[in-house]
Design a protein around this nucleic acid. Structure first.
Lengths: 384, 384
DNA sequence: TTGTAGGCGTTATCAC
DNA sequence: GTGATAACGCCTACAA
């Protein structure tokens, strides 16, 4: 009665409903029966606590074998009902489609989730506040262990209802309210410094211009990226003792706007180096520069932000400061799963984790003269 | 004992585990208690079958009000355990990140799912067969109602294990095996016809060349899109009685390849119209044409496929046949949810739903002379 | 060392 | 017309 693995023996007849779902999965009870032990024993063995519970090695082996042979997989739905944990995370963002970035954000999140044996629900809100709440509720209805709430461009946002009750992480965003929540954002300020520094290091000092925003604070509405990139640029230039030659603010960062802005720039200051606030603007800049009969980087050097796919499609390849979307996605999931259970675990404000934005040096910056002996870089002393 | 809504009355003390999850949701029992009826009655009312079960109007009203007031939301996990349906769908694709298209595919799927009150699990396989199986199993462990298995470019694929047991739909792919499964794919063949026809309609007849594949069958490995676009192009030209002037096959459809291919073309045949097999190739073509001191569309007209974001970034805007990613995503979910329950519901082979690829006419095609009086277009008589 | 039993929240059966 | 009651699959306190 012990040795013979009797699979699928008389399962109790269940009253079939008119439309009965096919349930042909192997259950824990099946495994236990097949191994000749109780479901309790089987449960302990399969959760790795067989030794702890002092199950006999023989019984343990039988359970393991039975599970193997029957291809048993635990039903996470029922486990979730019992334990309240579903190995499932909700990923809600304002956009998954319009920007190619979204893919990498999700990619990183998926990878991190997979490492921890979690699955991801995806939801898109298109910025609709009611939809945000609905999605978050729908996910909680399905027992998610936590939610990552993501924005596609770095910004401040009002925390949607339902996020605060259970574990949550903000991705690419910080809350307007002073709530205790973990935020994962790219380090846009350092990125601003990196971008101009690429130009400064190559010897550009005279005619550096920027496209996308203008000091002190002419930036696209609500874009934290714009503000912080600008801050970084301004600070790095001040440190180097270099004047900003020109700046064209842009309401929207699209190629045609970059094109017009650059035409304006070429008439006004004819810069030798341009920092574009993203790669699309840079595409427009390339077009305008070519149209003026000039070349990149021979006549004009161009640096940019984002490291869009576009950056390596352009000729010459564009030097740009990358948004580390993959890392951002990863970090958000990691932070969520590693978070202490209590949301009230510390200071009464957000915990902000800044992810570095690496400079991708390519072919759009002209080396003007031998690099100056680098003096020890003076990093800012004031906290941001 | 009836009228007073007593919420949160003595819930039975449950033995707390060491780490007990906070369960502060309102349950059906809470609602029933609050309305002074049994959970059965409450269940029937809330599932809209109150009348059918002849619940008194008064009781029904009380239940509805109690649910409203307490903000009751059904726990889908437990419902799923009981009924086997989770209002959840798995979306597994080989890539969500590398191509911007993926976003629109997912977008359409999300929208369709939301219309039907379903949530989407997302998974990425990177083409790894073991990962495919793991993901599909992980989703079934969580009780998904079905799975959409998506490819990012149209192709044939081996059906991964675990897909056939429960409802599934193939997106952007057809199975190599003759299994009964619904497939949703873009109509690449008609797209091929549309592309050349845009050129032919504009009066181009002499020097039409193509970049990306060459007749009869020099196409990138495994790409159904390449084969079918080529077929469509060849057929449309044959119908119009026009010879193909030149063709450059490309192993990979990237900008630099398009650039080189176009340079070759300009030396060899100096075409007046080029059909590029995707927009990235077209970007390369633009670059090569400009470098040769020629203009689009003045000297060379360009048509393409995909309607990448790129298409409207280029100057002039690119005429291209769009991949309807949003529609594809929508259709896959719709097909999945509308599918008859039995997988063995018909012919022993895939059911293929072809989604039209619309031509986006923009500024890269030059009208050569007044359009010829269109003779009735001879559509193919042979089935594909 | 192993098994029994109860409960997670819902739905469905079947007596009253 | 309504309300116990059982069951979905899993986990675990507790009894044996």
């Amino acid at each position: 009665m012990i040795a013979t693995p009797r699979r699928f023996v008389k399962r109790p007849l269940i009253p079939l409903t008119s439309v009965q779902v096919a349930r042909n999965r192997v259950t824990l009870a099946d495994v236990a029966r097949s191994a000749g032990v109780s479901t309790t024993a089987a449960s302990f063995v399969l959760s790795g606590r067989g030794a702890e519970m002092r199950i006999s090695p023989d019984a343990e082996a039988r359970v393991l074998r039975a599970a193997q042979e029957t291809g048993y997989r635990p039903n996470i739905v029922s486990r979730s009902l019992r334990t309240g944990t579903s190995r499932t995370i909700g990923f809600v963002s304002d956009t998954v489609a319009t920007t190619p970035f979204a893919g990498h954000l999700i990619w990183g999140a998926l990878d991190a989730a997979r490492d921890r044996e979690h699955l991801l629900f995806i939801g898109e809100t298109e910025g609709d506040q009611e939809l945000e709440t609905q999605l978050i509720e729908a996910m909680h209805d399905r027992g998610v262990d936590g939610i990552v709430f993501a924005s596609m461009y770095t910004r401040e946002l009002d925390l949607p209802a339902g996020l605060t009750h259970r574990p949550a992480v903000l991705l690419n965003a910080v809350p307007t309210q002073p709530v205790a929540i973990t935020c994962v954002v790219p380090d846009e300020f350092e990125a601003g410094r990196s971008a101009v520094n690429a130009l400064l290091r190559a010897g550009h000092r005279e005619r550096i211009a920027i496209i996308g925003a203008a000091p002190p604070d002419d930036t696209p509405e609500g874009s934290l990226a714009a503000v912080q990139r600008l801050d970084g640029i301004v600070q790095a230039m001040a440190e180097a003792g270099v004047e900003l030659a020109d700046a064209v603010p842009c309401p929207d960062w699209q190629p045609d706007i970059g094109y017009e802005a650059t035409r304006l720039l070429m008439q006004r200051t004819r810069p030798s180096g341009i920092v574009c606030f993203n790669d699309r603007l840079a595409l427009g800049a390339y077009q305008a520069i070519a149209e003026a009969g000039l070349t990149v980087p021979g006549d004009v050097s161009v640096v940019s932000f984002d490291d869009d796919l576009l950056a390596t499609w352009l000729r010459p390849h564009l030097t740009t400061v990358a948004l580390p979307h993959y890392e951002l996605g990863r970090e958000a999931i990691t932070a969520l799963l590693d978070a202490p259970q209590s949301p009230s675990g510390g200071a009464p404000g957000p915990t902000i984790r800044r992810i570095p934005m690496p400079l991708r040096e390519r072919d759009s910056v002209q080396q003007l003269r031998a690099p100056r002996p680098s003096r020890p870089s003076r990093r800012p002393l004031t906290p941001r």
